[in-house]
């Protein structure tokens, strides 16, 4: 699946999208929030979680894994 964003904490900094090794996460140019553009390419590595400086990102497992 990919990133799940807590909108109340997200500053739109883009770190998660910058570092996601699968290129899953992109930034929405209108909302300035990250979203899962290629959710079926997620390796559930959790890089988005550790790269987020605001504690706004959690990894959501892909459907077929959980």
């Amino acid at each position: 699946m990919g990133i799940r964003v807590d909108k109340s904490k997200c500053t739109g900094c883009g770190r998660c999208a910058e570092e996601c090794p699968g290129d899953v996460i992109h930034m929405n140019p209108d909302t300035h929030l990250p979203f899962n553009k290629y959710k079926n390419d997620c390796w559930y590595c959790g890089v988005c979680e550790v790269e987020c400086p605001c504690g706004a990102a959690t990894m959501e497992f892909p459907c077929l894994i959980v």
Binding site: G22, N40, D41, C42, W43, P62, L64, I65
Partner: peptide, 8 residues
């Protein structure tokens, strides 16, 4: 076995 292409 999951059928998930990126679940390797």
């Amino acid at each position: 076995d999951t059928g998930y292409l990126f679940g390797t």
